[in-house]
Simulated scan of single mutants.
Amino acid sequence: MAKNLLKNPYGDDDFSNWELTQNGGDKWIVEPMTDNAVASYFCTSHKLCLKKQVIILLQSGYDAAYLDSAPEVTVRDWYATRHDCGGVYRLTVSLLNENREVIATFKPADVTVPAETTWTQVTHTFTGYGPGLRFISFEHGGQDNKSWKGWYGIRVTGSSVTIPPKP
């Protein structure tokens, strides 16, 4: 079974392993989950909040020959809003070569999410992208759509990037 290559996908260790690339408004926070088996989630503010991880695949147990065979790379992310405020969700995942140049990118249009949206999963599988994969950049986040001061923006949790183990 493929393991999740992202570290700290639920915010259990606050923001360790994440680079805060945009930290607008009242900034990112981690909040406890009250109605699910997941312990916590990341919460955005009234201005754009984005966070990123870059996965170094050669340090994650994959060898160059296997990566050059272009194995499937599956990305999953979960987002939701509060009961009283909608938001905008953003996701960008890029496959990078040894020079950190882009091989392939998954960047769906920003999603405007109404208030009271329950947890929604987005998923994408990269295939047929050719040789050279060495890094994966995963960046996501958003903001609220009412510009309310505080943490009324998009919530994200349970993010994952998986590559099947070498056969």
Rank of each mutant, 00 (worst) to 15 (best):
L6P: 02
P9R: 05
Y10D: 15
G11S: 05
D12E: 15
D12T: 14
F15V: 05
N17H: 14
E19F: 05
L20V: 02
T21G: 11
N23P: 02
N23E: 06
G25E: 04
K27L: 04
K27D: 09
E31C: 02
P32C: 00
M33D: 14
N36G: 06
N36S: 15
A39Q: 15
Y41F: 14
T44S: 15
S45E: 11
C49H: 02
Q53K: 08
I56H: 15
I56M: 07
L57S: 06
Q59R: 14
Y62K: 05
D63W: 04
A65R: 13
A65F: 07
L67N: 03
A70F: 09
P71T: 06
P71E: 07
T74W: 00
V75N: 00
W78I: 00
T81C: 04
T81K: 01
C85D: 11
G87I: 05
R90D: 07
T92D: 04
N97C: 07
E101M: 14
E116L: 12
T118H: 08
Q121M: 15
T123W: 00
F126I: 04
Y129R: 08
G130W: 11
G130A: 11
P131A: 15
R134Q: 15
S137Q: 11
H140T: 09
G141M: 02
Q143K: 14
D144M: 01
N145C: 08
S147C: 05
K149C: 03
G150S: 10
G150C: 10
W151L: 10
Y152V: 00
G158A: 12
S159T: 13
T162M: 06
P165T: 09
P165D: 15
P165E: 14
K166G: 03
P167D: 09
